[in-house]
Amino acid sequence: MQTATTPSGTIRATGIGKRFGALAVLDGIDFRMTTDEAVGIVGPNGAGKSTLMAVLSGALAPSAGRVELDGQDVTALGAPVRSARGLMRTHQIPKPFTGLTVFENVLVGAMHAGGHKGKAAHQAAFSALELSGMTPLANRQAESLGLLDRKRLELARALATGPKFLLLDEIGGGLTEAEAAELVAIIRGLRGRGIGIVWIEHIVHILLQVAGRLICMDAGRIIADGDPQAVMSDPQVVRAYLGGA
């Protein structure tokens, strides 16, 4: 993997808005981070977290605002190009290539967004499998994997591309406590490799084991951003979660 030697990068999003017809899902989002950070994003359902993820990764075009990667405007570029430049997203519901083996799934990332060829691609795939604990399953058909392994496969595929930034969309959702702990251990391990992490999660306590910075969203806006403990005790955040009061 080349991630350890990748120079640090930045994501900068300014004035991001996203409308679906009359519905404003994102409204004036300003966000920036570097590869040295692990940022957690929380917020009630419908706050716009996954939409923000889609806009950052290039899966959705914003209605307003711009996204910059390492100082370059990437707003007009789609997901395939952004992923090749190191901005990788995993999906909330795992999307394995069911007709391929685990190794072949990971190889897709290594060969395409990763830009590796031949043996180098195999090595990138091996490292990604190893990092995400999938090595023993290398020859399994992805179709036959359970939920935890499907999530780990999402992660492995993303890692094989040699990302600078990893956008994790509820990767812990639906897992048991023990499974989630296993995943946290893997993700913590990535922090030492210079990969910036953005992680959306409903299960706040597992998020806090990784995130050094926490953002809370509500109704398409960022309502708090900073030290996790401070954000969690912010009156606006408490109100967004508990409603009323």
Binding site: P80, M88, H91, K95, G99, V108, A158
Partner: peptide
């Protein structure tokens, strides 16, 4: 064939 969106986010 298996998942176009995922393929796209892996650079395909």
């Amino acid at each position: 064939r298996d998942n176009e969106e995922a393929a796209g986010s892996l650079g395909v």
